[in-house]
Write a protein that binds this DNA or RNA. Structure first.
Lengths: 341, 341
DNA sequence: CTGAAAGCGCTTACAG
DNA sequence: CTGAAAGCGCTTACAG
């Protein structure tokens, strides 16, 4: 395999000069640079990233940590957004899935001594105090994407759940719904990070707008999470909604995917949406417009881009004027939430 | 930053022993191994991948090459499948998007001298003869995923388009459709790799079943590909279908995404699906069941897994008994293709 | 089972 | 602007 040494020999210059010419750093005469480049092209030479990395101390790699599959609507878009920015800046993006508490513990145990990335983007993970401490002591920057709390991260990008839920409650209130509820996603039984923030925000908003405890229902994710499949969880959630005494006339659902599946399940047993139950989702994914789902729009690809931009700035040793970005979700009015009755 | 040397010092053994103990290679006494591991854990030590890679000649990295966004239905599922297998085998997965002919040329120009991956998975790319030659000369194995031709790749995983299209035509024939057509995806104007194989297979199947040229219509991707947005392309395709003299009573569409968008566009102007036009898609993605689309099911996550399994076997220096896998798509009967008339 | 030593292929002060 | 040399942190024959 041809190495930098071969290029140096073929071009009649030193290895130092080849290195500088190819990377465009340091002072090299235009003529020399051109000759080196020409020889390198002819020999199909590429720098060994491992060797460069070892010598320079920069890995030119970014780890993107997920708790869930890469092909969810949110994760895949966030990764695409981050990829675009990182590729432009010369960084490789390396996805890592951390599914269980044990995985996560191992990951954090090894973090302090980890020299295998110049930075990381951590997606949708709730950290405990110890983990926050580890991040703070890290020599490489970390960006929290969909981080529900700022602690530990050098920068964060998130959606304003509080305000989003306020908009949703406001809508339901304006439409005359007096009994409302929130439906959580099924918990991953093996994993503790499912944030309760969105449901918490929903109820806070509702109370501040005059709803009383008796008006509010929570359909808890852990009640469906013990079921084997997504469909089982959907059935159980639908069942609990139907059999609820004093059933709400409207619910918010934690994500569009769950909202849409739920809507189909409810209609199948004869509950009319929106007449009997209004539904508001969260995400505005590709299914939502087709399902005519009223929902809150967020843009994970943009969030991925923003996270990567912050990270690149930090990896270059600069500081951020706005390390923590909070985006607003926008309410998309469609057919599943209409006036009560 | 703590290095292997520090671990060796703290454990009172040589660096060689630490290396062997931590990687579980070579003969190390159980007691020594345990002590080394304990010290390594205490110091939060992780091997530097760059240094390991440089010393061993293995990068433990796999490049996965796409021509399109990471968050398409097919790509994200394929990546998830490949990730699962590669992560288990200790490899990092590094996505690479090659959007233009120029990108692709540069990529292949640099491939021969590239030491930055131990193997690669190439998704949905049509290769020319020169590129096939480059792959064949490569020292690292390459797997073609959704490779429409075998040439150059050490192994391939694909769907049997021929047979899938035969099933589709057979269905339309059984349902009494005598005038049928195929709708291609809009071309990426900047890119030449959109395969014509699926439409070719469709017409081959139709002819072999007695359809005459006058019965068959092709709606070519390049006719919609010059439009700016996906929606524009959909509109143009719908327009061409509607204004076709001797309009077909049924069409196959290259992918579900395009089929569903097309269906909505057609219904909007009053064409009834399936009464006026039956539609069969390809993919069976999450939208299809909701849209009640009759389609051909394929499983990109499984294809990603299979590709990675083949690649891992090859990277370990073993040979494959079945390097080229062809999966069958299965026809999913739903509401958009019914008896003619 | 364990260690000393060479070497992987670069980058980067340091000198000139 | 260019080169000689040290060194990044590992792995792996080679010896014992």
């Amino acid at each position: 395999m041809t190495s930098l040494k071969d290029v140096a020999a073929a071009a009649g210059v030193s290895e130092s000069t080849v290195s500088r010419a190819l990377r465009g750093t340091g002072r090299v005469s235009a003529a020399t640079r051109a000759r080196v480049q020409e020889v390198a092209d002819r020999l199909h030479f590429t720098l060994s990233r491992s060797a460069s990395s070892l010598a320079s101390g920069k890995t030119m790699r970014v780890t993107m940590v997920f708790t869930d599959s890469l092909n969810t609507w949110f994760n895949s878009a966030a990764m695409q957004g981050a990829y675009e920015v990182l590729a432009d800046a010369g960084y490789d993006l390396v996805p890592l899935i951390v599914r269980t508490q044990a995985d996560l513990r191992r990951f954090f145990d090894q973090l302090p001594g980890n020299r295998n990335a110049d930075g990381m983007i951590v997606v949708s993970i709730m950290l405990d105090q110890k983990q926050v401490g580890i991040l703070e002591d890290l020599t490489i920057p970390s960006v929290g994407l969909d981080a529900r709390a700022i602690g530990g991260y050098s920068a964060t990008v998130r959606v304003d759940d509080m305000n989003a839920m306020r908009q949703a409650v406001q809508l339901l209130n304006s439409l005359g719904h007096r009994r409302i509820g929130f439906v959580e996603m099924p918990d991953n039984p093996d994993f503790q990070f499912s944030a309760k923030l969105r449901s918490g925000a929903f109820f806070d908003a509702a109370r501040s707008m005059g709803y009383e405890e008796g008006d509010l229902s929570l359909f808890e994710g852990r009640d469906f999470g013990k079921f084997r499949s997504f469909q089982d969880a959907v059935s159980e959630a639908a069942n609990r909604i139907i059999s609820k005494r004093e059933r709400p006339t409207a619910v918010c659902v934690e994500t569009d995917d769950f909202a849409i599946a739920l809507m189909y399940a409810l209609r199948k047993v004869g509950l009319r949406v929106p007449e009997d139950l209004a539904i508001v989702g969260f995400d505005d994914n590709a299914l939502s417009s087709m399902a005519e789902l009223t929902t809150l729009h967020q843009d994970p690809q943009l969030m991925g881009r923003m996270s990567a931009e912050k990270l690149v700035t930090l990896m270059r040793g600069k500081t951020l004027s706005d390390p923590h970005s909070m985006l607003q979700a926008s309410l998309i009015l469609r057919a599943t939430a209409t006036r009560v009755g």
